[in-house]
Amino acid sequence: MKKYKITVYDEKTGEKHTIEIEMSEEELEELAKKLAEKHNVKVRIEKV
């Protein structure tokens, strides 16, 4: 498992949230996809 920083940005409201999380790359990609689809936000992932 690796550490990642996830930034979620909502273009409508301008809200931006960043968290650090430790998980596998596959789980992370699935999480990012679900966030983007369900909440209509942009998701950026960076390795820490």
Rank of each mutant, 00 (worst) to 15 (best):
E27F: 05
L35T: 02
I21K: 07
K38Q: 10
T7H: 12
I21F: 07
R44V: 15
K5Q: 05
R44P: 01
E22F: 12
V41Y: 07
L35Q: 01
I45W: 06
E27K: 11
T18G: 03
I45D: 01
I21V: 14
E22T: 09
E15I: 12
K3C: 05
G14N: 05
E46G: 00
E30S: 09
E15M: 11
R44G: 05
K12L: 13
Y9S: 06
E37T: 09
G14R: 04
E15D: 07
T18A: 07
I19L: 11
E22L: 11
K33F: 09
K33E: 06
G14Q: 07
I6W: 01
V8D: 00
Y4S: 00
E25P: 06
I45L: 02
L35Y: 10
E11N: 10
I21W: 04
I6H: 00
H39E: 14
E26A: 10
I45R: 00
Y9W: 13
I6D: 00
G14A: 03
V48Q: 04
R44C: 15
E20P: 01
A36E: 09
K33M: 06
V8C: 14
K34S: 09
A36P: 01
T13H: 04
E26C: 09
T18V: 13
V41D: 05
M1Y: 09
K2W: 15
K3Y: 08
S24N: 14
E15G: 09
K42P: 04
E26N: 11
V8Y: 12
E25H: 07
E27G: 11
K3D: 02
E26G: 11
T7Q: 03
K5S: 05
E20M: 13
Y4K: 00
E30A: 07
Y4W: 14
T13E: 02
K5E: 03
H39C: 14
L35W: 07
S24P: 07
V41P: 01
K33R: 11
R44N: 12
S24I: 09
V43A: 01
T7M: 05
K5F: 04
E15L: 09
E26L: 15
K12D: 13
L35A: 02
K12R: 11
K5D: 01
H17T: 12
E20Y: 15
R44K: 14
K47M: 15
K34Q: 09
E20V: 14
H17M: 12
R44E: 15
T7N: 01
R44T: 15
M23K: 01
E25N: 04
T18F: 05
E11F: 13
K33C: 11
E20D: 05
H39N: 08
Y9N: 03
V43K: 00
K2N: 15
T13A: 03
E20N: 11
I6F: 01
I45T: 01
H39K: 12
K2S: 15
E11Q: 14
G14L: 06
T13Y: 03
T13N: 06
K16A: 10
